[in-house]
Each structure stands twice: as C-alpha cells, then as structure tokens.
Simulated scan of single mutants.
Amino acid sequence: MNARSFMGNTVHRGFSRNRYCVIFLFISLHFTYGDVSYSVAEEMKRGSVIGNIAKDLGIGIATLSSRKARIDTDRNDKRYCDINLSTGDLIVTDRIDREGLCGKKATCVIKEELVLENPLELHRISVHVQDINDNAPQFSEDMISFEITESAAKGARFLLTEAHDLDIGTNTVQRYNLQNNDHFTININTEGSGRKHSELVLVKELDREQEKELKFVLTAVDGGSPQRSGTAIIHVTVLDANDNAPVFSQVVYKASLPENSPVDTVVVTVSATDADEGPNGDITYNFDHATDEQVCLFSLDQKTGEIKVKGSIDYETQTSIELRIRAKDGPGLTSYCTVTIDITDVNDNAPAISLKALTNPIPENVSPGTEVGIINVRTDSEITEGPLLHSANDSL
C-alpha cells in the first residue's frame, strides 16, 4: 500500500468513526427503555412474587421466551431476583437483608436489569427494600455499673449506655423502661437526629449505711409490630464522692482521611477532662457500639484518646464513618462524643468494561448501524452505556 492510499484510508476511517459516534448518541436514546420500580419487604421467602414485570412493561408472555428475557446486574455479587418466563412475575431468588445491604441508610435500593434480545432491549429495575422489625434492641454491656456517692443530691443525672437496634425508623428504639425502685427514675432525651438516650435520675437520697448497692432492670423497647426489646442490669454501688463526670472538649469531632492512608496514620485525638482528683479523675476511652468492621479499621488508645488507622480504608465501600466514643472515669461516670470521618477518594480503581451481546449468530449481510450488543463502562461513580453498532467497514 502506498503512502497516499494509506493516508486516504486513515482519513476515511476517522470520518467513519465520527459519523458513527453521532449515530451512537442518537440510538442510545432509544436503546434503553422505561424504568420500572417495585417495593419489597426484606427477608421475603425465595420464590415470593415482587410484581408482574411483563404486565407492567406491556410485554406478552410468549415474547419473554422468544426474546430470551433474563435478569442481569452490573454488580459482581449475587442476583436477588429473577423472572418467571411462564408468568412474567419478578420473583425473589436470594435472601434480601436490608441491614446487610444498606446498614442505617434511610433508603435501600437494589438495581437490576431486564434484558430482551432480537432486537436487544434493556429495562432498568429498581427494587426498594423496606425494613421489617427483625432485630431487637441490644445494649453493649449486660450490666451497667455506677458508683454513686451517698452525698449525691436529688435530681442528679447519670447518662446510661444507649441500646443499639439495626432496624430503622419506627422499628428502632423508641423508649426505655426502668424497673420500679425507691431511688431512681428514668429520663429520655431525643437528639435532633432522632437518636434516643436515657438518663438515670436520682429522686431519693442514697444512704450507704442502709444499702451499699442497688440492682434493677433497664429495658429498651422498639416501635415495631410486634415489639422487640432488650435488657441490661443497672448496678449501683453507693460510695463517698465522685462528683464530676468526664467532659469532652468537643461533642462532635470531624476528620478527613484519604482512602489510601497507611496503617498507624493518626485520624484524630479525642480529649475529655474530669474535675475530680485521683482515681475519680482517671479517664479511659473506649469505642461504644462499634461494629466489627469499625474495630478492624481503627484503633483507639484507651489512655490518650488517639484514633489511628488499623486496616484498609476504601472510599468505594464507605464515604463516611461515624464512631461513638465513651470516656469513663475510675468509679464509672461516663460521657460520650461522636467522631465523624469523611473518607476522600483517590484514583485507585480502573474503569470496568462489560459487553452484553446477542447470543444468536449475526448474518454476514447485516446492515450497517444494526445493534449487535451493549457496552457498559463502569467507573467508581457512574455507568456509561450504549449500543455496539455494525460498521460498513467491519467484516462479519
């Protein structure tokens, strides 16, 4: 091939690519069809019907088989639903656990795709997973211990460990009940976020000479139907004088952390002070209600309050992490703070390309511009999708 013919062919192919790029943009608008959305309760049995997708999309039952309808996903993990080709029903095929999928997020959506062939057609499916009351409130410790001086005045308040419930909304903790006793009642406070915590309130002075210790039951109750509950024992040892609880320098600590931060990177240091002296003023720090994942990612120095990276941080898994820290002095008075860590992204993931093509052979005389497949290019934040077209310069 001479230089002139080579250059001419190059220009011609470059022009063709530009022309087909325009066609690609035009056809992609028609290639992905309407979306369909369903709502389903978590933990439904396998085989349960979510909805009739054939009816909702106006597709005949016979068409499902003839066009090889199937449910597909862009994720690498399991599929949670499938289509019954005999009825057109979208059915549950695997356990759907909202807490495992979405944690405490207010909304939880599973995204799937219905793929039809001949011609190739794609419908996006959104399955909104609704919470059920399948978790009971739990306290982080079975016994909540206090050492309270007999000189404590009526009205003195002692913050109690809050119960944790994996469910959301009304299915999470709604109230606390305290077993009847002569000395204490309970007060419930609700934060702006809706989180409820309780305080032990002294209503009758303690007398160490009459009672050296007290025990009664604290119960956390959720708002589900039926309701679930969890309990802890409050153990009060009556002593002579620890008048001050630790006080954090901040109620909320905020930090920013790149996802590729090495182990032992210092994230933030929390600090609390106690006006008492000696053992009454000695403070130790601990995580409160930390998940196994959080304990694997971060360490907390019990003496200094220094939080360090312990495991591998991944922005694609979590963009923000919240830790609850408890400061406790020698006799057991406590206070709490929240540490919010924003994970920042670094360029550590290459785009993932997936090709969805027709399973039937393509005739060699197929017309240019005919759709023969779909190419998905997935980055960390979005999916670019469009048809793969036959070009006049392509040989089959």
Rank of each mutant, 00 (worst) to 15 (best):
M1R: 10
A3K: 12
F6A: 08
M7Y: 15
M7R: 14
H12N: 10
F15L: 03
S16N: 05
N18D: 00
N18H: 03
C21P: 09
I23S: 10
F24E: 05
L25P: 00
S28D: 05
F31G: 02
F31V: 12
F31N: 12
G34T: 10
V36I: 13
V36K: 13
Y38Q: 02
S39Q: 00
S39C: 04
S39W: 07
R46S: 03
R46K: 03
V49G: 08
I50K: 02
A54T: 04
A54Q: 01
K55Y: 02
I59T: 10
G60C: 03
S66W: 09
A69E: 02
D72T: 15
D72H: 12
T73A: 08
K78E: 02
S86G: 04
G88S: 05
L90M: 11
D94T: 13
R95W: 08
R95A: 11
I96G: 01
I96H: 12
R98W: 06
E99C: 02
G100F: 03
C102T: 02
C108A: 07
I110E: 08
E113R: 06
E113C: 01
E113N: 05
L114A: 11
L114G: 05
H128A: 14
Q130Y: 13
N135R: 14
F139T: 15
I144F: 10
F146R: 03
F146C: 04
F146P: 12
E147Q: 11
E150M: 02
S151N: 15
A152L: 09
F158S: 01
D165E: 03
T170R: 15
N171K: 00
Q174H: 01
R175T: 14
R175A: 14
L178Y: 00
Q179V: 06
N181F: 07
H183R: 01
I186R: 12
I188K: 05
S193P: 06
V201Y: 00
V201M: 03
L202M: 15
V203N: 09
V203R: 12
V203L: 12
E213C: 06
K215C: 04
V221R: 01
Q227Y: 08
R228E: 01
D240C: 06
P246W: 09
V247H: 12
S249D: 10
P258L: 08
P262W: 00
P262Q: 11
D264P: 00
T265Q: 03
D274P: 02
A275F: 03
G281S: 06
N286Y: 02
C296Q: 15
L297P: 05
L297C: 01
Q302I: 08
G305N: 11
Q318L: 11
T319M: 10
T319R: 14
I321P: 04
L323Y: 02
L323S: 05
P331D: 06
G332Q: 00
T334S: 15
S335I: 07
C337N: 03
T340R: 13
D342Y: 06
I343G: 04
I343Q: 10
D345P: 02
N349P: 06
A350D: 07
A352C: 09
S354N: 12
K356H: 15
K356E: 13
L358P: 04
E364A: 11
V366C: 09
V366I: 15
S367T: 09
G373Q: 08
I374E: 14
I374P: 05
D380N: 03
S381Q: 06
E382W: 07
I383W: 03
T384H: 09
G386R: 00
P387V: 13
L388M: 08
L388F: 05
L389V: 00
S391F: 13
N393I: 07
D394F: 07
D394H: 10
